[in-house]
């Protein structure tokens, strides 16, 4: 599987990343190298193995419906680039 430059541009847009043509070329090469590396897995015989969505042999991990203490607003907002009162302030994105 090879990623094209257009696919990289599409993924960059979805991730809201602005890439230069040089970066686009650079990441296309890097991501394809990663995909090539993982392509080795396709050589393994998986005919007897059920498809799985999870690598850990665990199911049904749950917690009781109990409230636990939340952050104080100052802690919640500690990493906010900007705040207005106790709210996160972000650039407006028109949906």
């Amino acid at each position: 599987m090879r990623l094209s430059r257009d696919e990289i541009a599409h993924v960059a847009l979805l991730s809201r990343l602005k890439l230069t043509e040089e970066e686009m070329a650079q990441f296309t090469g890097q991501l394809n190298a990663i995909l090539d590396h993982f392509a080795a897995l396709t050589e393994a015989d998986t005919g007897d193995i059920d498809a799985t969505t999870h690598v850990v042999p665990m199911t049904n991990v749950m917690r009781a419906d109990v409230q636990r203490p939340s952050f104080a607003p100052d802690d919640a907002l500690a990493n906010a680039p900007e705040r207005a009162g106790d709210q996160f302030k972000v650039p407006r994105v028109v949906e």
């Binding site: 636990r68 607003p73 106790d86």
Partner: peptide, 16 residues
């Protein structure tokens, strides 16, 4: 997570 769900709480008081 264990944060509360009551509507109308002051902003960002139910986060973790």
């Amino acid at each position: 997570c264990g944060c509360g769900t009551e509507p109308g709480a002051p902003p960002n008081t139910h986060t973790c």
